[in-house]
Each structure stands twice: as structure tokens, then as C-alpha cells.
Design a protein around this nucleic acid. Structure first.
Lengths: 282, 282
DNA sequence: TGGATCGATACCCGGGAGGTATCGATGCCC
DNA sequence: GGGCATCGATACCTCCCGGGTATCGATCCA
């Protein structure tokens, strides 16, 4: 199976429309039809049910969609990591670390400092991304290492090492009456009148239903809280970089948040090993 | 990057010889040289240092060897799993479970029984393999699920769930004086006079140096122990299927052996989920 | 029933993958 | 040190296959 065939199949399987898929791939529709037919012939498996009106995945087709995406990611990763290895040989950057914007800021800076202090440390580029993207970036080679928060972030097929756990705070507008309390309980902060929890986007970009406002990043979230339109329960380390117009109160019975450092399996990089070692010694 | 290019590169990188690699691939040497040159041109990276006498990997080349193998495994896995999904739709087999011959026999049969008793259980084919092969089989799609014994088996990039831990026994010829003891300690069994620990092959098939006999599987091992040429410390479950002419004594301070059930990440199969569920309920 | 939509088919063209012959460099051996 | 063997690169040819355009055939809708 050639990667070209896989790319074509994934495009059709995602669009469920040969015309649009061909457009996305930058080719005409007939060669795409032929390529898919040939792939099916070679596999000896029907991947798509097609009438002239509707295209649908067979059982085998949906398996190939999932597996094919993973395989394409692996090929992309091989490409990117090879290019980066060549750059590294010419003295260039070392590692790309990816984490969610606003998460574990303090831990991250401590980690970067600790690693930079090691002899022979590589440079570390920090890449901030949205929710749930880290795994993808690790898998297709755009990043070497990530800070994740299981179980919110999935860690399937990724090697991890636990770094820290921390409690959570509720973040409120500065003047809110609850901010005079030393601590609160979840029961106090769910359904605060007028301060609903915000809704974060799912992986596909859509938002769940509910009363809270839609937010895409922590800047939006803080803005909304400052405006008195929302509240949020966040890991304790967010306090370090909280805006002046917000206040935070510990929530005793909120689940503790763990932070792990994660990297793709079978990585042989010395730089990565050093960073992980520095992280576990924090 | 096309899988053909990757296959070609991996062949050359493993042989470090264009002629032999071409032979292995079933093509002539010139197109292979050109394909590698083109791959290097497209990546913009030197992968091989070649004189007319010697071919060596560059730093980037060894990265691509590791990553390329992983990518090819992923492509193979996509192929195999798609084919098997199509078979499954026609009522055919369900899962392939791989484990080391002779290991966790009792656990395995309990697992198979428990799963078979579930409504809608798929058929499970059992595949027995040598040391350290399981990970590969899982990764390239020849198996769906494995029983592993970390830390002896590597579990990088694989999802696992712990099933059991058990102590270890020393296996001795039936008449050996130690077999009258209720239990022993490691100090008693290392360096038993005339009964050295056997040497198992490494991943590449070579054997470490040492006094013990070379063994490739448990049948060979048992034969040698029965002959009074070796002894071995094995998981307690081996007692169930021990030969009559062997005896086993618990070793109190031997490290406990854990058995995990392992499967490739991002598996969506209902059958696999059912098997894992059955396993964790044992 | 006629038109619009959409995948499949027919047919053609060009690039590239693979082959053979040969070159050029390097190490070895007498 | 010169002749030779080894081995990767290059030159050149062929043919297959990937991609394009034109068109067909089926299906849904008005």
C-alpha cells in the first residue's frame, strides 16, 4: 500500500464525496475513482458503498480510515524527524515542546530552567496549542515532547512520566463575595448564580450544549470571568499568572490535576532523554 | 514520502550495501541508487555517507531508519487490519492473541474461557511466539492483543492493563536435595553447583556470554533441567504444566512477575474491548 | 419525463520507475 | 605500483501507470 493511496482514501472517507475529495487533493475526480478502485482490488476488500447519490464507509473502510490516519501520521513523523535530525547536526534547534496555552506555566518554566542548566542541553522551542492537539503533534512529528493532563488528554500510544499533581481553584471576579472565603467545595461553585462554567470546544470544533459561554482559550476565559459572565475551576498553578481583576479560591474536593511529560515511543534522542530526566528530578 | 521509498531506504540502511539491498528488494541496483538519491534530494538531507567501498548511516539516516520502520509497520498494520475487518464482516475469525509459549498458561485459559462465555464473543486465535516478538506483531497488525510481562517485554507505544502478579519458583530436577525445602531464597539458587541459569537469545538472535546452556524455548529449558544441566527461576504459574520429572520450590525474594494484557493504541474493535473487559474482571 | 448530480468508463499523454550497459573511484594483491 | 575486482553513479531506453479531458449511466428531483 502506497501512502498516496492512503491519502486518497482518507480524503474520500472524510468527505464521503469523490468530487470534493478530488478537489481537496488537487486532482481530477476520475483518477481518484480509479485509485480507490485499485486499492480495493489490491486489498480484496470493499471500502466504500457507493451509489451515484451516496458514498458510505463499509466496516473495513472505517477500520482503514482510523489505521490509515495513524500510518500517515507515522510517515509524516518519519519525514519531519529526519529533517530535524539533519538540522540538529548543523547545530540547530533541539526539541519542540508542546503544551496547552496557560497550563502548568510555572512547572514549564522550572523545567526549562532545570534542563537549560544541564551540560550539553539542546535548545527547546515551546509550541502552544489548543485542546487535544498535543497527541496529534507528537504523533506526526511536529513536536518531540508534551506536557499533558490525563485523563483530560488522551495518552494512548504515548510514553509518559508523571511530574506533579496539584489541587484546583475556582477563579472568580475580584469582588465576588466567595473570594473572602479561605476555601470552597464543589457544591459551592457549580451553578453559581450568573457565573456558569464555560463550554470548551470538542476535538471537532463544535461546542457541547449548555448554559455557559463558549471559550476557545484562557485569555477569552479570563475576560469573561472578569466581566462577571463565567467562573471556572482551574489547576492551582494558574494563580501565578492570574490577572489583577480576578481572584481564586481553593476548591477542596475538586479532583487533583496531574501533569505528565509525554513523548512518542521509541525515541532515541539524547536531548529528549535529558529533558525527561531533568523533568523527573524537579 | 512514499512507502516504496521508505522500504528501499530501510533495506539499504540495514544491509549497508546497495547491491545486496537491491537483491533483497528484487530490483536492480541502479534504480535503487536513484531512488535513494531522490529521497535525499526531496528531504534535503543526506541519509548515507557512501564511498565506493563503504556505506554508512548519517545521524539523520539512523533517525529515518527507526522512524521509517515504525511507519512501515503502521502501514502494514493498516493493510492487515483492514483485510481482517472484511473477514470479520463475513462471520470469520475475531482476534489474534499472541503470547510467549509456556507463559501464563493458566491465566490464558481462564481468560479465553471467560471471554468465550460472553454473549457475542468473537473467536480468538492464539499465536505463540518467541521472546520479544510480541510488540512487533502488535504494531504491524499481525496480532490484536498480547499477554506481556513488563519489564522484560517492552510496552512503549502500547496500551496495557495489569492482570495479575505472581511470585516465582525455582525449577529443579525432581530428585534435587533443594526440592525437599518448603521455600528458598535467591542466594540459594544462583550459582547452584552444576545447575547454571540458562542463556536466552537476545532480540538479534545472539546469545550473551556465560556458563549456562543456550535455550530457545521452554521445552528445551525443561529438557535441560530434567537432564540435570540447568535450573531456572520461573513464574509460579508454570507449576501447572510442569513435567513429572521436574520439581519447583518457591523463591521468596524473587521479584514478582506481573502479567499485562496489551493492545495497539486507538483500537476501535468491539471484540477487543470485550476481551480486555473480560481480562480485567478475572 | 427532462435535467442535474455524481461516480464510472474510455481514451490519451507524459513522467517516472525499472532495466542494461558502462563509467569512475577505491581498495587489494601479486 | 600496476592490474584487477568491487561497488556506487550515470547514461540511455522502455513501458507502465498516474493524471487529464470527454463522456456515459444511474439516480434523484421537479
Amino acid at each position: 500500500m502506497e501512502t498516496r493511496e492512503l491519502r486518497y482514501f482518507v480524503a474520500v472517507a472524510e468527505e464521503l464525496h469523490f468530487g470534493r475529495a478530488a478537489q481537496r487533493l488537487g486532482i481530477a475526480q476520475p483518477p481518484l475513482s480509479r485509485a480507490i478502485a485499485q486499492l480495493e482490488r489490491r486489498l480484496g476488500v470493499a471500502l466504500l458503498e457507493r451509489t451515484s447519490r451516496i458514498v458510505a464507509l463499509t466496516e473495513a473502510g472505517s477500520v482503514l480510515l482510523v489505521e490509515g490516519r495513524a500510518a500517515l501520521d507515522a510517515v509524516d513523523a518519519a519525514d519531519r524527524r529526519t529533517r530535524r535530525a539533519a538540522l540538529a547536526a548543523t547545530g540547530h534547534p533541539g526539541l519542540v515542546l508542546v503544551t496547552k496555552a496557560g497550563a502548568s506555566g510555572e512547572l514549564l518554566s522550572k523545567l526549562l530552567d532545570a534542563y537549560a542548566a544541564e551540560p550539553g542541553a539542546a535548545t527547546v522551542d515551546v509550541l502552544l496549542c489548543g485542546i487535544g492537539e498535543q497527541e496529534r503533534l507528537l504523533r506526526d512529528g511536529r513536536a518531540d515532547v508534551a506536557l499533558l493532563h490525563p485523563p483530560f488528554d488522551t495518552t494512548a500510544g504515548i510514553d509518559t512520566e508523571e511530574l506533579s499533581t496539584e489541587g484546583q481553584l475556582v477563579v472568580l471576579p475580584a469582588g465576588h463575595p466567595h473570594t473572602r472565603r479561605a476555601h470552597l467545595r464543589m457544591a459551592d461553585v457549580t451553578a453559581l448564580p450568573g457565573l456558569p462554567m464555560p463550554r470548551w470546544p470538542r476535538l471537532d470544533g463544535t461546542y457541547p450544549d449548555g448554559p455557559g459561554p463558549q471559550v476557545r482559550d484562557s485569555a477569552q476565559l479570563y475576560q469573561l470571568i472578569a466581566l462577571g459572565r463565567a467562573s471556572a475551576v482551574l489547576p492551582a498553578s494558574c494563580r501565578a499568572n492570574l490577572r489583577r481583576d480576578l481572584a481564586a479560591v481553593p476548591v477542596l474536593d475538586a479532583p487533583r490535576v496531574t501533569t505528565v511529560i509525554a513523548w512518542p515511543p521509541h525515541s532515541r534522542s539524547r536531548a529528549l532523554a535529558g529533558l525527561v530526566r531533568a523533568a523527573t528530578r524537579l
